[in-house]
Design a protein around this nucleic acid. Structure first.
Length: 445
RNA sequence: GUGGCUGUAGCUCAGUUGGUUAGAGCACUGGAUUGUGAUUCCGGGGGUCGCGGGUUCAAGUCCCGUCAGCCACCCCA
């Protein structure tokens, strides 16, 4: 055991772990590209004030922040959205709209870790900026779904809860809640299932201090709206307020677009989702595990005011984030995590010193042709070498002994079937290319 | 940040009322085996029992502290 341990919440990735992580990142990247999103990347270390500008001073508690040698207050990025806002703001007028961008990067949060939550994790962020209509929301929600379907998850194993902070704001306004008090009331809504009635009433009362609205009525109406689980219930709950009714038209459009994009069956209306974050302004959604643990897998929504607040022009935006830790847990529990070991194409088994020179020439030739080749560094006997080839994860072994070299051939062995064929060494590269493309039959007599 | 549970080999674990030099299986590695791989046999490496202190003739074992992991809160960008 080493004297050193890794820092809490930080992971090291052995090759098999890295292969699993790579699988997740690959699936995300492919899904984003299929949707026409372009990848960007930002700095891991950012000025502290970029992060507090977005989320307020309270988040410093959850940041890896310090003062660097130039006396700058800096922090490891806890997310990528502030960086995105800065990049977009800097070229806002030059970028063709809509902007479809995604990023995959490691992010850091100074929190006490537990299941599904570490201090360093990889996160996918996908954002669509410059389009205010429901078409953008639909596109991003569909992409979120595709980023999970790409793992081979069945359509009933997860779902997307869809809610709407615009609708919440309008309902609260019709109850006499002033705009500036609405986020605090939604903070109470976010805790509906977890706090006692007395605590909730106290929180709403405090949020409404100085306003004319009746806290008990606001709480009761909020409870009713938060219980809405379908669009039909939503229509019924909307009431007579024309501002609320107008919003339902955008709901209809969004639901229709989602159906058109083929993910309508994955969406569940759930007005109980309000997202704690104050900067969300419209539709918000959460992907969650529909079986068993019901854990949250991704979250996002519309944040129309953020780019402007970060110093850019007014720019509508919608996006989501998805972390590797919860996704990995889900795939493991569903048996969907591939356990492929990245083996070489060929294991060259060198039986003796008299064959090594010829074998290494062929190793070099195969490698130059782009094939992945491993070989035994010290001479070994046949059984051990076949074991070594197997445990290396190779599909084929190439056997080099004195006999083969003397006759100018190499022996090709398919490890799984244990069948063999001989190939003249002068034809080795094209023959092995054919084996990889067409299978072992390409060299069998 | 608060609370609960748990720390013995890479992994899963055993270790007696405190008592010799801390063990097993798996894994790794070498040999039996000088060209056809899953068996078998023999050998080897790997532990300051998470770390520090205390009690004791004696601590993996009891006590305190600390760190780490897991879980629940908090938070969830």
């Amino acid at each position: 055991m080493s004297k050193f341990e890794s820092l809490p919440g930080f992971r090291a990735f052995y090759p098999e772990d890295r292969a699993r992580l790579g699988h997740i990142l690959d699936v995300w990247r492919r899904a984003c590209r299929r949707h026409g999103f372009r990848e960007w990347e930002g700095p891991v270390l950012e000025p502290l004030e970029l992060l507090t500008a977005k989320s307020g001073d309270e988040i410093v508690r959850q940041l890896f922040n310090f003062t660097d040698k130039g006396e700058r207050a800096v922090a490891l990025r806890p997310e990528m959205t502030p960086t995105l806002a800065r990049l977009v703001a800097a070229r806002a007028n030059a970028l063709p709209k809509p902007i479809r961008w995604f990023a995959i990067g490691e992010c850091y949060r100074y929190e006490k870790q537990q299941k599904g939550r570490l201090r360093a994790f990889h996160q996918l962020n996908a954002d669509l900026l410059g389009e205010a209509g429901p078409g953008a929301d639909a596109e991003v929600i569909a992409l979120c779904a595709e980023c999970l379907l790409g793992f081979g998850l069945s359509r009933d194993s997860f779902a997307l809860r869809l809610s709407d902070r615009t609708l919440w704001f309008r309902v609260l306004a019709s109850l006499g809640v002033p705009d500036e008090a609405a986020p605090a009331v939604l903070g109470a809504v976010d805790k509906l299932g977890r706090s006692t009635d007395a605590e909730l009433l106290a929180q709403v009362t405090s949020a409404l201090s100085g306003a004319s609205a009746d806290p008990a009525r606001v709480l009761a109406e909020s409870r009713r709206l938060a219980a809405v689980r379908s669009f039909a219930e939503l229509e019924a709950a909307a009431g007579a307020d024309p501002a609320v009714a107008a919003r339902l038209a955008e709901w209809r459009e969004l639901l229709s677009l989602l159906a058109g994009l083929g993910v309508g069956d994955l969406v569940r209306v759930d007005l109980g989702i309000v997202r704690g974050l104050a900067y969300y302004t419209g539709f918000v959604f959460e992907a969650f595990d529909a079986e068993g643990e019901q854990r949250a897998l991704a979250g996002g929504g519309r944040y129309d005011g953020l780019v402007e607040r970060m110093g850019g022009p007014a720019m509508p935006a919608v996006g989501f984030g998805m972390g590797d830790v919860t996704v990995a847990n889900l795939l493991e529990s569903r048996g969907l995590m591939p356990s492929y070991a990245e083996g070489p194409d060929f294991f060259v088994a060198i039986l003796g010193a008299d064959a090594r020179d010829a074998a290494l020439r062929d190793v070099a030739a195969l490698r130059s042709a782009g094939m992945r080749v491993e070989y035994n560094l010290r001479d070994g006997r046949f059984p051990k070498l076949m074991q070594a080839a197997e445990s290396a994860g190779a599909r084929f072994a190439l056997v080099y002994g004195g006999e083969e070299v003397a006759r100018g051939v190499a022996k090709v062995r398919e490890l799984a079937s244990r069948s063999e064929a001989e190939v003249p060494r002068v034809d080795l590269v094209p023959a092995m290319r054919a084996v990889l493309e067409e299978g072992f039959g390409a060299v069998q007599p």
